[in-house]
């Protein structure tokens, strides 16, 4: 029971950061989602020890572990759009796959190249 109370309290802290992020987005007319701004703020505050990890960890862990639950209602909405993937639309699946392959290969190879070069310099 104590744990549920903690999860709720910690989630309220996350909601506050989200609201602040939204406020910043709307005030400055930014394209970056308010939720992402809130996340960056929380990370900075955690790093500066302004916010203690014990204030958010139970709530954050619960949410991150069950992330899927929170977007199920939206994914169900695909029910109104299934015809998008019919016929020529199936091409979209192939596009997503090729693009994913390129992202994985190029980002990974770049990081790997940089770290290996760094290791060589240290030798």
């Amino acid at each position: 029971m104590l744990n549920i109370g903690k999860i709720i309290l910690h989630t309220i802290v996350l909601i506050v950061f989200y609201q602040v992020g939204m406020l910043i987005q709307n005030t400055f007319n930014l394209f970056v989602p308010g939720s992402v701004i809130g996340m960056i703020l929380l990370f900075i505050f955690l790093s500066l020890k302004v916010v203690k990890i014990t204030w958010i960890e139970n709530g954050a862990r619960f949410i991150v572990d069950n992330l899927a639950l929170f977007f199920i209602p939206v994914t169900v909405g695909v029910l109104d759009y299934y015809e998008v993937f019919a016929g020529i639309g199936s091409l979209l699946i192939l596009i997503a796959l090729i693009s994913t392959m390129l992202v994985m290969g190029i980002s990974g190879a770049t990081s790997q190249l940089l770290i290996k070069r760094r290791a060589e310099e240290h030798d």
Binding site: F17, V36, G59, F70, P73
Partner: peptide, 23 residues
């Protein structure tokens, strides 16, 4: 979505929660 929207409201805070694994 009369009910689904309530879960949907937590999506934003869920993104904020990603600061935790990053930290």
């Amino acid at each position: 979505m009369l009910g689904g929207q309530w879960i949907d409201h937590l999506l934003g805070p869920a993104v904020v929660a990603l600061a935790y694994p990053l930290y």
